[in-house]
Design a binder for these strands. Structure first.
Length: 357
DNA sequence: AACCCGGGGGT
DNA sequence: ACCCCAGGGTT
């Protein structure tokens, strides 16, 4: 079912986009690798936050071959601070798959792209359209917002059926001629014009917008509320001896999987932490309290933490936990850490000097 | 279908 | 304090 003429909605967006498009680096290329990399970075991430990481990563790994050959520890270190660290792991998986199984060439269709680890409906549509000109509509937070307002769609955008409904509508709207431009335009429009608190007075779609006409701009899109945050308490022990520090890489299905940290006990207070790990008891004679980070806030958790610096004499003997290892203090900088620990280090000069010389 | 996964910025 | 951000994976 080819569209001969475009929907007026699409025409207006494309016209608006000609005058308002930002000059973003991933819009200057057709390289599917660079587009893919940018899209993974931008998942649930604002452009301003992702941009420095885009420059760093494209410089460190200019091609998919470079990324596939990368050491995962190095990749995690580059991803440090960006959040949602499973993206980094899936990035590496997909790069290796593309190099090893696909001769370094990315799949060129939505239905093939979506099979890649870390590539879901949005990202597959984005790559298929931007790199290969396929008319698959992107449906991201911007698109939900614009379509819900303009067409008066009441479906809860967190409901399972929402994606299907909004995608079907977007599929009707996307032109067969330069679908990539439409996808860029609708997201840019959502970001700059039809934002969560929009400036309807300057909107080119004001005369035909359902939400504006019905005075329901601030009620659309409908989105159910997030559940309250879980409160957690972490006790950190920076155990240092003979120029080395005790660390481990978080592995459990939990926050910060793949990142590195100091000896950590999840407990509301020091005494309970010691009771849980009796080897700590004789160490505490060498411990000094560090300035604790403030409450560290994640999307669904609040982490309240405390930390002790434990500098042990060389002849001090104790049995370290089996899942922890010693590394040179100076090498800690090279590992990917949670921002909570970056803040802890920044706020404590003594710690900073141990770890950064 | 429900739940989990970061960090930062706007209001 | 709450919302949102160029979402995706697991169970």
């Amino acid at each position: 079912m080819k569209k001969v003429t475009n929907h007026p909605f699409a025409e207006t967006l494309i016209t608006w986009y000609k005058d308002h498009a930002r000059d973003l680096p991933w819009r200057r290329t057709n390289d599917p690798y660079v587009i893919w990399l940018s899209e993974i970075i931008l998942q649930q991430t604002r452009i301003a936050q992702g941009l420095p990481y885009f420059y760093t990563l494209t410089e460190a790994f200019p091609t998919v071959y470079d990324l596939a050959a990368a050491d995962e520890t190095t990749l995690f270190r580059h991803w440090q601070g960006l959040g949602y660290y499973s993206r980094a792991r899936n990035l590496h998986k997909t790069a290796k798959h593309v190099v090893d199984m696909l001769d370094g060439k990315f799949p060129e269709t939505y239905s093939e792209l979506i099979k890649l680890p870390g590539v879901g409906p949005y990202t597959a549509a984005a790559i298929a359209s931007f790199a290969f000109g396929e008319a698959s509509p992107v449906v991201d937070g911007n698109v939900y917002r614009i379509l819900a307002r303009y067409f008066g769609i009441e479906t809860d955008i967190l409901h399972a059926s929402a994606r299907k409904e909004f995608t079907a509508l977007a599929q009707e709207l996307i032109p067969n001629s330069d679908p990539a431009r439409f996808n860029q335009a609708i997201m840019e429009f959502g970001s700059l014009q039809c934002s969560p608190s929009p400036d309807c007075g300057s909107c080119p779609l004001i005369s035909s917008c359902f939400a504006y006409r019905e005075e329901r701009v601030n009620q659309l899109p409908v989105k159910s509320k997030a559940k309250p945050q879980r409160i957690r308490h972490f006790q950190y022990f920076i155990i240092e001896q003979a120029g080395k520090v005790l660390v481990h890489q978080r592995q459990a299905k939990d926050i910060w999987q793949g990142l590195w940290e100091f000896f950590c006990v999840e407990s509301p207070d020091l005494q309970e932490a010691i009771n849980l790990h009796p080897f700590l008891s004789p160490l505490m004679g060498h411990a000094v309290a560090l300035q604790a980070p403030g409450v560290h806030v994640l999307s669904h958790q609040k982490i309240i933490s405390a930390a002790w610096l434990v500098q042990l004499p060389s002849n001090f003997k104790f049995e370290k936990p089996s899942d922890y290892q010693w590394i040179l203090s100076s090498e800690f900088e090279q590992l990917g850490k949670p921002v909570l620990l970056l803040n802890l280090i920044t706020d404590n000069i003594a710690l900073k000097e141990i770890l950064e010389g």
